[in-house]
Write a protein that binds this DNA or RNA. Structure first.
Length: 647
RNA sequence: GCUGCCGUAGCUCAGUGGUAGAGCACUCCCUUGGUAAGGGAGAGGUCGUCAGUUCAAUCCUGACCGGCAGCACCA
C-alpha cells in the first residue's frame, strides 16, 4: 500500500502502483477529465505513472501555473510531428521549453522559411484536434538505438548514447508518432489547446557547438489561454517600440554606416547623453578616491605579448600594419589594464601608495564577430569606465567591498534595485598557477560573502587572468543586462613586472583589481534608452526643454525665454518656425523632448509659459522664473543633489 | 564566423527584363493658427558594390559589403 496526502491534508491509502489517473477517476470523473498531470512531492509526473511510494499528491489542471511548462513541451512534440508529417525525412533532435516558449531543432537539407510557419501551425492544429493520448514506454538502450538508426534518426541515436547508464530510455507516443523524451507530458495532445504560435525560424548548432552541424530551429510559444498569448505578443511589440536603434534615429542620437561596422557615429544629442553619463561616473569615482588617467590608444605588440593578450585574443585584436621605416606592429588597445600597469610601474611605488586607484574612460577596439554586432549593445569600438586598483593581498576583501558598494549605489541612482551578482571562477583558457587562482577565488568569495548579497555561481566564466563578480541589472520590462564587474588579478601585474616596496624594503607584486560599473558607456547608453523607452529623466535628457511659439508675435519673448533657460543651466532649444502649435507639439513629442514650453501672445504679455510634459496632455501655466527654477532643480543629477542636500 | 532572410529617396515601403513610384521628412509660397499632422508648388535616387547572362539588368545568376533574427563568441 502507498499513503497519499492530498492538498487539503487528507491522507488515504491506495494499492501500490496505482496510477494518478485511477485515483482521479475514483474521486470524480470530472476531476479525471480536467487533470493533465500530477505532482508527487512537488515533482511533476505523468498522470499514468504508477505510484510506488508514499507522497504528497496534487492534480494539475491546465490552468495551474506549473502546467505551462507541460503545455509548451507538448507543443514542441506536436511541432515535431507536424514537421515530420509535412516533410518526411526531416530528422528530429531536441525540443526543450525555454523562458518564453519552446523550440525544436530539426536537421534537413532545405531550411524552413517564414512561409512554412503558418503551414506547420495548421498541421499542429490538426494533430491537437485529433487529441491522441501521450503514452510512455521504457525501451532498452539497444532497442532504442536500433529503432532510431533504422529510421535514419542519427541525432536521436547520439542522444540515447548521451543518457547516463542509470537512467531509463523513455519514449513518448502520441498516436503513431513518438519521440525520445524524459517527460513528463500531459494526458493528450488536445491539452495543448489553441493558444500557441510559431514565432520564427533560425539556425542553431547541434549541441551548441559551432564545430558541429547547423540545424534548423523553429521557435514557438504557447500559453494556457489566448489572452495570455495575446498579452505576450503585445509585450514583444512594446519591446520593439523601445528598440534603441529605432529610438536613436527618432531622437537623432546616433547612426551607424557600412564604412565603420560596429562603430558609432554620435550626433550632438547622443553625445550629450553619453557625456552626461560619463560625467556622472567621473564625479562618483573621483569622490571614491580614484584618479583619472589616459593611456595610449596604440601600444607596441610586445606589451600585449607580455600581458598574455596576444596569445589569447590575437584574432579579435586590431593590429596596425607596420610602416616601412618603423618595423614595429602596434596594437589598437583592446583593454586598458596593460596601460594602467605602465602608469603604476612608472616611479617606484611604496606600500604607502596603496591602494593605488586609477580610472580611465578608455576607448577600446575589439574585432567582434560580425554576427555579434547589435546597435549600441555590442560594438567594435567602445568606451569602458575602467579602473584598476593596486593593492596588497590583505586589502582585497576591503577594496572589493568598496567597489561593490559603489556599483550598487550607482545602479540605485538609475532606479535599478533588482541587481543580481554572479561569481565567475577559473575558465579553461587562463594564465597563472592553480594555487594562485585558488587564492584569488577565495579572496573574492570572502568579499562576496561579506557583502551579504545573494549571488549565483557562473562556473568557468572568469577572465583569463582572474575570477570575477558580475553585476546584472533588470530593466523596466524585465530584461537582464550584465554591466558592472570586479575582477581579482594575481597574474598580470607579475607578468608585466609591477611591484611595490613593502615595509621591510622587499619588492612585492601587487594584487590588481579590475573594475567597471557601466561596463561600456555605449552599451549603457543603449540600455538607458530602452529602459526609459526614450523618456529619459530630465537630468539625462540631451534636450531638456523646447520653447515653441504659437504665433510669430511671441518670437521676441521666446528668444528671451530660451536665453533665460540657458542661464538656468538647462539644455534648451527654440522652435520659432511658422507652423501650427499642433504640429510642433506632435513633432517634439515624437522626438521625446521631456518639456515643452509653449508661448503665445498671452504668455509674452504675462512673462509666463505653458508647460506640457512628455507623455501627458496636461498643460500648466506658470511664470517663466518659477518654471525655470523648478526645471533647473529637477535637472540636477542625483549624486549632485545628494551633495547639495548634505551641504 | 555559421544558418536563414533582407538591401529601391533622409525615413517607412510599393514596383518592373526596356535605366523608377507613394506617404512622411526637406525647400519655397500662402496661412499667424492655443497643445499630436493647415494648404499649394518644388527638389531629391548611377535601385548596396563588382562581375556574369542578355540586344537590353534595379529586376536573372555569382561573389563581395552591410543590415536583421537566431546560434556560436563576448578579456
Amino acid at each position: 500500500m502507498v499513503a497519499l496526502t492530498f492538498p487539503d491534508g487528507a491522507r488515504r491509502d491506495y494499492p501500490e502502483n496505482i496510477t494518478g489517473l485511477d485515483i482521479a477517476k475514483s474521486i470524480s470523473p470530472s476531476l479525471a477529465k480536467r487533470t493533465i498531470a500530477m505532482a508527487l512531492d512537488g515533482k511533476l509526473a505523468d498522470l499514468s505513472d504508477p505510484i510506488d511510494h508514499d507522497a504528497k499528491i496534487e492534480f494539475l489542471s491546465r490552468d495551474d501555473p506549473r502546467a505551462l511548462e507541460l503545455i509548451r513541451h507538448d507543443a514542441a512534440h506536436v511541432l515535431a510531428e507536424a514537421v515530420q508529417t509535412l516533410w518526411p525525412g526531416t530528422q528530429v533532435t531536441i525540443g526543450p521549453v525555454i523562458e518564453n516558449g519552446f523550440y525544436y531543432d530539426f536537421f534537413r537539407n532545405q531550411p524552413f522559411t517564414a512561409e512554412d510557419l503558418p503551414v506547420i501551425e495548421g498541421k499542429m492544429r490538426e494533430i491537437i484536434a485529433r487529441d491522441k493520448p501521450f503514452t510512455k514506454e521504457v525501451w532498452s538502450r539497444d532497442e532504442a538505438k536500433r529503432v532510431f538508426a533504422d529510421m535514419g534518426e542519427s541525432f536521436k541515436v547520439e542522444l540515447v548514447d548521451a543518457i547516463p547508464e542509470d537512467q531509463q530510455i523513455k519514449i513518448y507516443k502520441q498516436g503513431d508518432w513518438f519521440d525520445l523524451c524524459r517527460g513528463p507530458h500531459m494526458t493528450s495532445t488536445g491539452k495543448v489547446g489553441s493558444a500557441f504560435k510559431l514565432m520564427k525560424v533560425a539556425g542553431a548548432y547541434w549541441r551548441g557547438d559551432s564545430k558541429r552541424e547547423m540545424l534548423s530551429r523553429i521557435y514557438g510559444t504557447a500559453f494556457a489561454r489566448q489572452e495570455e498569448l495575446d498579452a505576450h505578443l503585445k509585450q514583444i511589440e512594446e519591446a520593439e517600440k523601445r528598440d534603441h536603434r529605432k529610438l536613436g534615429r527618432e531622437m537623432d542620437l546616433f547612426h551607424f554606416q557600412e564604412e565603420a561596422p560596429g562603430s558609432v557615429f554620435w550626433h550632438p544629442k547622443g553625445w550629450t547623453l553619453f557625456q552626461t553619463l560619463e560625467n556622472y561616473i567621473r564625479r562618483r569615482q573621483i569622490q571614491a578616491g580614484y584618479a583619472e588617467v589616459n593611456a595610449p590608444q596604440l601600444i607596441d605588440s610586445s606589451l600585449w605579448v607580455a600581458s598574455g593578450h596576444m596569445a589569447t585574443f590575437r584574432d579579435v585584436m586590431f593590429l596596425v600594419e607596420p610602416k616601412e621605416d618603423d618595423e614595429r606592429t602596434y596594437v589598437v588597445k583592446p583593454m586598458n589594464c596593460p596601460g594602467h600597469i605602465q602608469i603604476f610601474k612608472n616611479g617606484l611605488k611604496s606600500y604607502r601608495d596603496l591602494p593605488f586607484k586609477i580610472a580611465e574612460f578608455g576607448k577600446v577596439h575589439r574585432f567582434e564577430p560580425s554576427g555579434a554586432l547589435h546597435g549600441l549593445l555590442r560594438v567594435r569600438a567602445f568606451t569602458q569606465d575602467d579602473a584598476h586598483i593596486f593593492i596588497t593581498e590583505q586589502q582585497i576583501a576591503d577594496e572589493v567591498l568598496k567597489v561593490n558598494d559603489l556599483i550598487l549605489s550607482i545602479y540605485a541612482d538609475f532606479g535599478f534595485d533588482d541587481v543580481r551578482i554572479k561569481f565567475s571562477d577559473r575558465p579553461e583558457k587562463r594564465i597563472g598557477d592553480d594555487a594562485v587562482w585558488g587564492q584569488a577565488e577565495a579572496a573574492l568569495m570572502a568579499a562576496l560573502k561579506a557583502s551579504g548579497r545573494p549571488w549565483t555561481l557562473n562556473k568557468g566564466e572568469g577572465a583569463f587572468y582572474g575570477p570575477k563578480l558580475e553585476y546584472v541589472l533588470r530593466d523596466a520590462i524585465g530584461r537582464d543586462w550584465q554591466c558592472g564587474t570586479v575582477q581579482v588579478d594575481l597574474n598580470m601585474p607579475g607578468r608585466l613586472g609591477a611591484f611595490y616596496i613593502d615595509e621591510h624594503s622587499n619588492k612585492v607584486t601587487p594584487v590588481m583589481l579590475h573594475r567597471a560599473m557601466f561596463g561600456s558607456l555605449e552599451r549603457f547608453t543603449g540600455i538607458m534608452i530602452e529602459h526609459y523607452a526614450g523618456h529619459l529623466p530630465l537630468w539625462l535628457s540631451p534636450l531638456q526643454a523646447m520653447v515653441a511659439t504659437i504665433t510669430s508675435d511671441a518670437d521676441d519673448y521666446a528668444r528671451q525665454a530660451i536665453a533665460a533657460a540657458q542661464r538656468a543651466g538647462l539644455r534648451v532649444e527654440g522652435d520659432l518656425r511658422n507652423e501650427k502649435i499642433n504640429y510642433k507639439v506632435r513633432e517634439h513629442s515624437l522626438a521625446k523632448v521631456p518639456v515643452l514650453l509653449v508661448v503665445g501672445k498671452k504668455e509674452a504679455a504675462e512673462r509666463s509659459v505653458s508647460i506640457r510634459r512628455l507623455g501627458s496632455e496636461r498643460q500648466e501655466s506658470m511664470s517663466l522664473d518659477a518654471a525655470l527654477g523648478a526645471l533647473g532643480r529637477e535637472a540636477v543629477p542625483p549624486d549632485v543633489r545628494r551633495m547639495q542636500q548634505a551641504a
